Simulated assay, not measured.
Amino acid sequence: FGPSGSGKTTLINMIAGLIRPDKGRIEADGRVLVDTDAGRFVPKHKRRIGMVFQDARLFPHMSVASNLRYGRWFTPTAERYADIKAVVDLLGIGALLDRRPAKLSGGEKQRVAIGRALLASPKLLLMDEPLASLDEARKAEILPYIERLRDETKIPIVYVSHSISEVARLASDVVVLAQGKVAACGPTGAIMQRLDLLPAEERGEGGAVLDTAVLGHDDVFGMTVLGSVAGEIRVPLLA
């Protein structure tokens, strides 16, 4: 998390292997990807990392189904764990398989891009502001799918964002970047209370993160009832 120019995309590109750092060490799940002192730099196609960019970057001449299958080609058969049908169902893109990218909405393109990354059976998923180019309606459409991705696949995700609402909804832990350095890191609930860490234009958006459970829905009044340690909380209807 951090303002534009703070180094978020540079950092995620280093993890992906798209940028070679001048000095440093990158390790993921005990596997050293970069160690400049030791002269180690694992090529990007051997890192087993999936990446979703701001723009979907789908192949325009391929159908959705072909774009999805492309993600599998670079993964050895014995190491493939992602099932095409399961990924299609997870992202709700079954009706799109025969279409070309030009016939998709922005939200649909991003869901396909996420599916392509998943079908590479990655050990780590990188998402570089995947909602930045979408309007509010499309963001609302795709956020539930990213939540399902987080909760159901159990793949570690490094999610880059400058949106407080996205961070509060999706993140378990937050690293705040400022001018190329780590300003703070910790659980989302703790970081969200630190208004001093937010960009000046966003300091009015600080808040708290509450752990709640959905108790029920009130369709008559269009509300959802949440249960928390503080009691019941009613919010606008959650789909």
Rank of each mutant, 00 (worst) to 15 (best):
residue 111 R to Q: 10
residue 8 K to C: 02
residue 88 V to R: 06
residue 28 A to T: 02
residue 137 A to M: 11
residue 67 N to T: 10
residue 2 G to H: 01
residue 126 L to D: 01
residue 53 F to N: 14
residue 220 V to L: 13
residue 37 D to E: 13
residue 222 G to E: 09
residue 14 M to I: 10
residue 211 D to I: 11
residue 186 G to P: 09
residue 43 P to V: 07
residue 103 K to W: 01
residue 220 V to E: 15
residue 134 L to Q: 05
residue 4 S to F: 02
residue 145 Y to C: 09
residue 60 P to N: 01
residue 153 T to S: 10
residue 30 G to H: 13
residue 96 L to D: 07
residue 6 S to W: 04
residue 120 A to V: 00
residue 62 M to R: 12
residue 189 G to A: 12
residue 238 L to D: 11
residue 75 T to R: 14
residue 196 D to C: 05
residue 10 T to R: 05
residue 94 G to H: 09
residue 75 T to V: 15
residue 178 A to W: 09
residue 125 L to S: 01
residue 89 D to N: 14
residue 69 R to Y: 02
residue 57 R to A: 13
residue 143 L to G: 02
residue 59 F to L: 14
residue 206 G to L: 10
residue 210 L to P: 04
residue 206 G to Y: 13
residue 121 S to K: 09
residue 236 P to H: 05
residue 229 V to T: 15
residue 221 F to G: 05
residue 23 K to V: 12
residue 227 G to P: 09
residue 24 G to I: 04
residue 61 H to Y: 11
residue 39 G to W: 05
residue 168 A to N: 08
residue 25 R to Y: 04
residue 147 E to Q: 15
residue 77 T to F: 10
residue 228 S to A: 03
residue 197 L to Q: 07
residue 135 D to H: 12
residue 177 L to M: 15
residue 74 F to S: 00
residue 139 K to F: 03
residue 169 R to A: 06
residue 190 A to D: 15
residue 42 V to Q: 08
residue 203 R to F: 11
residue 220 V to I: 14
residue 208 A to Q: 11
residue 163 S to V: 10
residue 207 G to F: 11
residue 75 T to W: 06
residue 53 F to G: 05
residue 58 L to A: 07
residue 212 T to D: 04
residue 106 G to W: 03
residue 92 G to Y: 14
residue 113 A to M: 07
residue 92 G to T: 14
residue 230 A to G: 09
residue 190 A to P: 07
residue 35 D to F: 01
residue 12 I to D: 00
residue 5 G to K: 05
residue 21 P to I: 02
residue 33 L to H: 01
residue 235 V to Q: 12
residue 109 K to R: 12
residue 36 T to R: 08
residue 100 R to H: 12
residue 70 Y to F: 14
residue 171 A to C: 12
residue 5 G to S: 05
residue 195 L to R: 15
residue 60 P to G: 00
residue 32 V to A: 04
residue 64 V to R: 11
residue 119 L to D: 00
residue 9 T to Q: 06
residue 201 E to L: 13
residue 64 V to L: 12
residue 140 A to G: 02
residue 8 K to F: 01
residue 189 G to C: 04
residue 200 A to P: 15
residue 45 H to I: 00
residue 9 T to N: 08
